[in-house]
Design a binder for these strands. Structure first.
Length: 471
RNA sequence: CGGGACGUGGCGCAGUCUGGGAGCGCACCGGCUUUGGGAGCCGGGGGUCGCGAGUUCGAAUCUCGCCGUCCCGACCA
């Protein structure tokens, strides 16, 4: 009598579960060119919600949006040695335009430090022009050898912020501010993902950065995912692009710059952090559809009328609600579809409910159902959405903590990282240890203070290295 | 890019070893009955068997090449 599972159970084959979910929840398809993907409307609606929430926070941090070209002269990349070395293997380069060989090949941007640096240099003349705080929403291309939908695709959508500052302290403070007030705040408060913040070790830094800060999340299989990064670029790009200004003493100075980004990779993180064997579980503050009002059946049109009334009242109350009145399709199928898509709350209305003056509310996060009076449902739902939001974060935090282990040796770290995160004193991790962990696919995800904050002035031997397998 | 597995209607697969009718389940379309957890019955539509060569009277099936997908590794913000 047991039906075949809708999705491959996560415990059986996590990657397969992920693929199944992308298909069944109508999130994405592979594109015709290897490594590319088509983002379907439901997933794109979620991305648009992410964009809206992140964009609001970026603007609150003082940055302005602009747009720079997709094509970058190859020579720009070459001006910063580490940068070009880091990106060369994954560049897409256009050599023919308009049917003719180009005099200088153009690269399809893998990131825009170089073009933006060129223009920042032009725009910054005085210390009064600083800080210069820019952001752009764009697509970028990095030719990937091993693509994975949303997590690593050859083309992806993202936001890249680029800023220039008078000195190192100001640049550092801004890079940290973005990490805390934009990225972590968004991930914790909206995505309900309890991300760790920390600094990357030298080997894991962005090509051309002097310091890379990161938000790391734990996925449902215990592996880590880098959800966003904020870089201090020192004066590397400022020097390469002659980004200078006159200070208040009339002295020529070189800027200090930062860059920071989050991408459609966060979609993959959202899926793998909250998804369960029945599908997605979208946190309410993110959800493009927070409540679906499902007409169970309708003999005379009265049920649909009641459902429409609920939807319009919810909409008026600021809830993102929609109706499902496809009564020609069975109840069970439709309930299953909305579960796959992770809609946080489902309101079920049928003739029996209506006769009793009730509706049924089903929570996606814990599967519970409660019957409530029709009159109170609209008033109750906003609070219930917040409760679901809170419980998803609490659940993800508990799941992460249950798989996080403080260890005292590299061997223990490797063992703990097989199922989750290992926290080990950084002073115990030398180059040989990093190599040894590497053979078990374990890497240092970030360095933190013992209480989980960004490294500051403390000596290295007081820091903790969080180690894990990762995507 | 190295190792492995796999490409057959939208999805999941059988058929390939041993060459000769392109099939099954789900999904889709129509009708009737249904509708409180993945509906039932009847009737339908849809596939150059990944692509290209080759062997053969004849290729989904054998050979070679290429492309793609998934896993592992290397690489990678």
């Amino acid at each position: 009598m047991a039906k075949a599972p809708i999705l491959t159970p996560r415990a059986d084959d996590f990657p397969r579960w992920y693929q199944d979910l992308l298909n069944k929840a109508e999130l994405a398809d592979n594109g015709p060119v290897r490594g590319t993907m088509v983002i379907r409307p439901y997933a794109y609606a979620l991305w648009e919600r992410m964009v809206a929430e992140v964009d609001t926070r970026i603007k609150a941090a003082g940055a302005e949006n602009a747009y720079f070209p997709l094509f970058i002269p190859e020579s720009y990349l070459q001006r910063e040695a580490e940068h070009v070395e880091g990106f060369s293997p994954e560049l897409a380069i256009v050599t023919i335009g308009g049917g003719k060989e180009l005099e200088e090949p153009v690269v399809v941007r893998p990131t825009s430090e170089t073009v933006i640096g060129e223009f920042m240099a032009k725009w910054v003349q005085s210390y009064r022009d600083l800080p210069l705080l820019l952001n752009q929403w764009a697509n970028v291309v990095r030719w990937e050898l091993r693509p994975r939908m949303f997590l690593r695709t050859s083309e992806f959508l993202w936001q890249e912020g680029h800023t220039a500052h008078v000195d190192e302290a100001d640049a550092r403070a801004y890079a940290e501010r973005i990490l805390r007030e934009v990225y972590r705040d968004f991930m914790v408060e909206v995505l309900a993902m309890p991300v760790l913040i920390g600094a990357k070790i030298a080997q894991e830094r962005f090509a051309g950065a002097t310091n890379t800060l990161t938000c790391e999340a734990m996925m449902g299989d215990g592996k880590a995912l880098q959800m966003g990064t904020s870089h201090e670029l020192g004066q590397n790009f400022a020097t390469a692009f002659d980004m200078t200004y006159l200070d208040e003493h009339g002295q020529q100075q070189t800027c200090w710059t930062t860059s920071w980004g989050v991408s459609t990779r966060m979609m993959g993180g959202l899926i793998m952090a909250h998804g369960d064997d029945a599908g997605l579980r979208i946190p309410p503050r993110l959800a493009s559809v927070q409540v679906v009002v499902l007409v169970v059946r309708d003999d005379d049109g009265s049920v649909a009328d009641a459902a429409r009334r609920i939807v319009s009242e919810l909409t008026a109350a600021g809830v993102r609600a929609r109706i499902d009145d496809r009564v020609e399709t069975g109840f069970g199928r439709r309930a299953t579809e909305w579960e796959l898509k992770g809609v946080p709350l489902r309101v079920e209305v049928g003739p029996r409910d209506l006769a009793a003056g009730d509706v049924v509310i089903a929570r996606r996060d814990d599967g519970s159902k409660t019957t409530v009076p029709l009159e109170s449902v609209v008033g109750d739902l906003p609070g219930l959405l917040e409760e679901v939001q809170h419980d998803l974060l609490a659940g993800a935090t508990a799941a992460r903590d249950a798989r996080t282990f403080d260890v005292g040796t590299v061997d223990e770290a490797i063992e703990a990282a097989a199922t989750g995160f290992a926290r080990i004193p950084w002073r115990l991790v030398d180059d040989a240890a990093i190599d040894r962990m590497g053979t078990s696919a374990v890497t240092v995800r970030c360095l933190q203070t013992t209480d989980g904050d960004l490294p500051g002035d403390e000596a290295d031997d007081e820091l903790v290295a969080v180690c894990a397998r990762s995507y």
